[in-house]
Simulated scan of single mutants.
Amino acid sequence: MVTKGASPSGNSQLTAPSKSGIKGLERQKWLFVLLAIGPSYVGYLLFTLYPNIMSVYYSFLKWDGLSKPKFIWFDNFITMFQDYFFWRALYHNLLLMITIPPLIIIISLVLSYLLINKSFREAPMYKIIFFFPNVLSIVVITLLWVYIYDGSNGLLNGLLKIFGYDNNSYYWLSNPKTSIWLLVPPTIWGAMGFYIVIFINAMKGIPKTMYEAAILDGASHLTRLISITMPLISPIIKISFLFLFLGTFKGFEMILIMTNGGPAGSTEVIGLYMFTQAFSISGRNYGYASAIGLFIFVLLVLGKVLIDKFIPNTDVEY
């Protein structure tokens, strides 16, 4: 505590706090920090770090979750690299990765630019419409698109009939050659609104004088978007691309509900294959599923390194 004391000359002065008072304040500070972030760290250790460490251990086991585990060293990894279905699922992931993230980024950038620079009177309404899918759950979005693709009463076939094309109640998700590409529209529709909001807020920080100067030079909207907007918000674009890369590679919930990997495994991705190996009714193999999960982790880390290498951080000043 800080107290007033009398000096030899009779004037009052402030004395330094005692050591016990300083220690009491330090204890209170650390107690506050412990109570504030302690539960989060405990949750992280119990539900994230510990399961990940145990999955590395499980990847060296032959174990169905019930019987006694058997240590088999690297047999799961050898089986994985010789598994045709594993590589087929990984190939489907690559198809989606080279399609979905770029399309979401491009569409979100264009729509955000138009909403910021075209001054539409209906811009607030458009923002709500674009962001609306993010309010819905994955299950709702997936069931909605299952209805759209339905052969008997689907909205897509109904629209085609309106324009004079009758495809005899064609069920869109039944063709193994095209079913993987039918996953792209619902994924883009469900994720696009989130990145539109991010890009709009990033573009609001760009000075309007830069656009005015470009307009005086005769630059088109496309030129302004590529030469001014994208370089100035490039860090935001990089982070968004990284999130989409991770989400596309790990995600399988929509595929599980919409096609369950079918028809004939044409939409099975690596996350769904791992899930099937761990929890299928026919046979559970937690060890093999853990080996696949460890491989996914290595690929995600490698992808992050490659993104940092080929899309460096560029700070553009204005």
Rank of each mutant, 00 (worst) to 15 (best):
P101L: 00
N52Y: 07
Y84I: 09
L94N: 08
N52Q: 10
Y57D: 12
P51G: 05
W63R: 02
Y50G: 04
L103T: 14
H92P: 00
N52K: 05
G65D: 05
L61R: 04
I98W: 05
Q82W: 08
N52R: 07
L103N: 07
F86M: 00
I53P: 11
T99R: 09
M97S: 10
Y91P: 01
F77W: 15
I72R: 07
T99P: 05
S67P: 08
W87H: 08
S59M: 06
F86W: 12
F86P: 02
P69H: 06
N76K: 06
P69D: 01
R88Q: 12
D75T: 15
I78F: 12
I98G: 06
Y84N: 11
F47K: 01
F85S: 14
S59I: 02
K62N: 13
L96F: 09
N52S: 12
F81M: 14
S40R: 07
I100C: 05
V42I: 11
T99G: 01
L49F: 13
Y44G: 03
A89V: 00
S40N: 10
W87T: 00
D75E: 15
L61C: 11
W73P: 04
K68L: 11
F71C: 01
R88K: 13
T79H: 12
L95M: 07
K70Y: 09
S67W: 08
N76G: 02
F85C: 08
F60N: 03
K70N: 11
K62D: 12
Y84R: 14
D75N: 14
V56Q: 14
N93E: 07
F74T: 05
Y84H: 11
N76D: 06
Y44S: 05
S55W: 04
H92E: 06
I100W: 04
A89Q: 03
I100F: 02
P101V: 02
N52F: 08
N93P: 04
P101G: 01
T99L: 09
N76T: 04
S40D: 10
S55C: 09
